[in-house]
Simulated scan of single mutants.
Amino acid sequence: MRARARRLLMPEVGNIDDVAVQLPGMRVAYEGDALNEADLADTWTEQLQEWLNQAISAGVAEPNAMVLATADAEGRPSSRSVLCKGLDTRGVVFYTNYTSAKSHDLTVARYASVTFPWYSLHRQVTVRGEVEKVNVRETAEYWASRPRGSQLGAWASPQSQVVRSRRELDNALSSIERRFANVEEIPLPPHWGGWRVKPDTVEFWQGQRNRLHDRLRYVHTHDGWHVQRVAP
């Protein structure tokens, strides 16, 4: 039974050595429009919103998905995908469990980077800067907009902790469902909330021919925001 399950999860792709041989030749020729300084919006917020709208219009799967990079107290990096749930002049926001591994990293380092990887558009945007917790009022407003199942899951999951089995998670969810069975509005968990990445740099990357990609970076200095072109 286990062998059959492994076959279902891992379909035949040929000898692993054959796959490794193919890797050096895997590439995509980027043919996108050039990204020039004159094309940029006045602010990084407006530019990111414009590209995000274009990603939505183009049908990009989960266009608000971004890769969050953090580091622990020993400097060991971790990355994972999260969903952007807020964007304004203060930064970009995502929500998570405050007892999770990512939250531990952010509490220690107070700095993070997120990248929106819009592969089909040959684009990416990287936002880097200090982090802060989103205030309870904003968190509560977002929490109220979440589907009930997602709210129950946030209460049930001891995020990033080792669990013995899937059944343990399912049992935890069942327990939470019973706990809130007669509760119309599920309360915000005390261990759950938002993080905001407050950028000091925001880089817009557009793929170009011959790997001479366009990289334009908004940089925050003592006298405001400036745009730099960075070599690919």
Rank of each mutant, 00 (worst) to 15 (best):
R6N: 11
R7V: 07
R7T: 10
L8G: 04
M10Y: 10
E12Y: 12
E12W: 10
D17H: 08
D18K: 10
D18H: 14
V19Q: 08
Q22K: 15
L23H: 07
P24M: 13
P24A: 10
V28I: 15
V28W: 03
Y30W: 12
N36L: 15
E37A: 09
E37C: 02
E37R: 15
E37T: 14
L40D: 06
L40P: 09
A41D: 14
Q47M: 15
E50K: 15
E50R: 15
E50Q: 14
W51L: 10
W51M: 12
L52V: 00
L52M: 12
L52K: 04
Q54D: 13
A55V: 09
S57V: 10
A58G: 01
G59Y: 07
V60K: 02
V60E: 03
P63C: 06
P63L: 09
N64Y: 07
V67Y: 00
V67H: 01
L68Y: 02
L68R: 05
T70N: 04
A71S: 10
A71R: 02
E74K: 14
E74Q: 15
G75M: 12
P77W: 06
S79V: 08
R80L: 08
S81D: 00
S81G: 05
L83K: 05
L83Y: 02
G86D: 05
L87D: 07
T89G: 12
V92Q: 02
V93Q: 13
Y95M: 07
T96I: 02
S100W: 06
A101P: 00
A101I: 01
A101T: 09
K102H: 05
K102R: 11
K102Q: 07
S103N: 00
T107Q: 14
Y111T: 08
Y111V: 05
A112T: 05
S113I: 04
T115L: 15
T115F: 00
F116V: 03
W118P: 08
Y119S: 11
L121R: 14
Q124R: 06
V127M: 08
V127R: 05
R128W: 00
G129H: 08
G129I: 09
R137G: 02
E138V: 06
T139E: 01
T139N: 10
E141D: 12
Y142R: 14
Y142Q: 11
S145T: 15
R146N: 03
R146S: 02
P147V: 13
P147F: 10
R148T: 09
S150L: 04
Q151G: 07
Q151A: 04
W155G: 06
P158R: 13
V162S: 09
V162W: 07
V163S: 03
R164F: 00
S165W: 03
S165K: 07
S165N: 09
S165Y: 04
R167Y: 05
D170N: 11
A172G: 02
L173S: 01
S174Q: 14
E177D: 07
R179V: 01
F180D: 06
N182L: 11
N182S: 14
E184K: 13
I186F: 03
L188W: 00
L188R: 01
P189K: 11
H191T: 12
H191A: 05
G194R: 03
V197A: 06
P199C: 10
P199K: 11
T201A: 00
V202R: 06
V202E: 02
E203T: 07
E203W: 03
Q208T: 04
Q208L: 00
L212F: 13
H213Q: 03
R215E: 04
R217C: 12
Y218K: 05
D223K: 13
G224M: 06
W225E: 04
H226P: 00
